[in-house]
Design a binder for these strands. Structure first.
Lengths: 199, 199
DNA sequence: CCGCTACTATGACCGCGGTCATAGTCGAGG
DNA sequence: CCTCGACTATGACCGCGGTCATAGTAGCGG
């Protein structure tokens, strides 16, 4: 995969996240993860003595940090930062992928939540943490654009909820329509909240 | 389960949907479905010669029709029908369940999409159909409340996307906060679209 | 050169679960 | 009473996949 030249451990976590995106948690085998990461099978039990659960949990955590890390970069890429612009960038990451590479992958955190929320407590916690770091990053970005503090968290939740749901619809329909729709419909509402507190 | 006194076939479809809600598609076994439906195991291959795939597909279709059927009932329950009121009812169905019975279940269509979109074409199609009948019912309700036709579809997509995403967050966090948040934040936007075309 | 620790390598085990095969029941119609 | 179709019942098969056990290698400090 793309991100070579990291340790085998990190590569396995990364590969796990990628495979979970496509096939879900249960359909992703350990052997498959090792193969995809070009890592020896024996390393699995060495680096992840907690078994598959630990690997999945780390993959989910990694995904959450990855998503959060992208937020400031999206802002930096905008000519002038606005909430609607940020959301459009977040959505565009998905439409770009889907149009370029097909609708193979979803959000790994969503997959982990759907499959493990009830059966594997630690994974549920990991998913919760991933969502909250992601939401936190978005909320922080919003406050930086003039959204009142107490409103920023709510809007971040709304943005991520809509995005996650739109990803689901897009994969099912194999059409980015839902993604572009939520971006278009939510944009004005987001910008209005930023203007609330501006001079 | 609650809806007894239907044919064993329908009971199995219903049970499958319920179990998929909780554990996802892969973690739900055929034997488990039969047991939950109090149906004989041998009936599975009799009524569903297409195997598990057929059962899952039918469960997804059933869930879509169920969700669509509820929309007009929500409207009927409102003192005066408004888009925000409808959305609040849709959300409330989930908050009520979560507060009463815990965060065990999610949306079966979401589970099928996450786990089968890439691997099982027929299930992906079934999920797409389920989302579209659901969205269609919501859009129709919106036009009935004065939302312009070309806007209604987009808002329905936004509503369902937000709801699905908020369900994910709620299950992960074991907190209905995300659900109440999207209902609150989206309400004004929805009602504004309805007033667009009113006298 | 030894031995210790980190990592790699593989084969075996074992439970789970979908599917198939083969009967068994049972009510309706001849 | 017989038969035929619809449905029920169960045991067996078989692949998959996570985990364990048991080695083997490699680098390094002593």
């Amino acid at each position: 995969m793309a991100k070579a030249e990291r340790g085998p451990r990190e590569r396995m976590v990364f590969s796990a996240a990628q495979l979970i995106r496509r096939d879900g948690v249960h359909s992703t085998g350990m052997r498959q993860v090792a193969a995809d990461a070009a890592a020896p099978r024996g390393s699995l039990q060495h680096y992840f003595p907690g078994g598959k659960t630990q690997l999945v949990d780390e993959a989910v955590g990694w995904a959450g940090r990855y998503a959060a890390r992208r937020v400031p970069r999206f802002l930096a890429a905008l000519p002038e930062p606005t909430p609607s612009g940020l959301f459009a960038e977040m959505v565009r990451q998905w439409t770009d992928e889907y149009e370029a590479a097909g609708f193979a992958g979803g959000c790994p955190v969503a997959a982990a939540t759907v499959e493990c929320a009830e059966s594997v407590p630690s994974t549920r916690t990991a998913a919760s943490g991933a969502f909250s770091t992601w939401t936190g990053a978005v909320a922080e970005a919003l406050t930086g654009m003039g959204v009142p503090e107490e409103r920023a968290g709510a809007l971040a939740t709304l943005m991520i909820s809509s995005l996650e749901g739109a990803i689901l619809l897009a994969r099912a329909e194999q059409d980015v329509r839902s993604l572009t729709t939520v971006a278009r419909e939510l944009g004005p509402l987001l910008d209005a909240a930023a203007r609330q507190e501006d001079p």
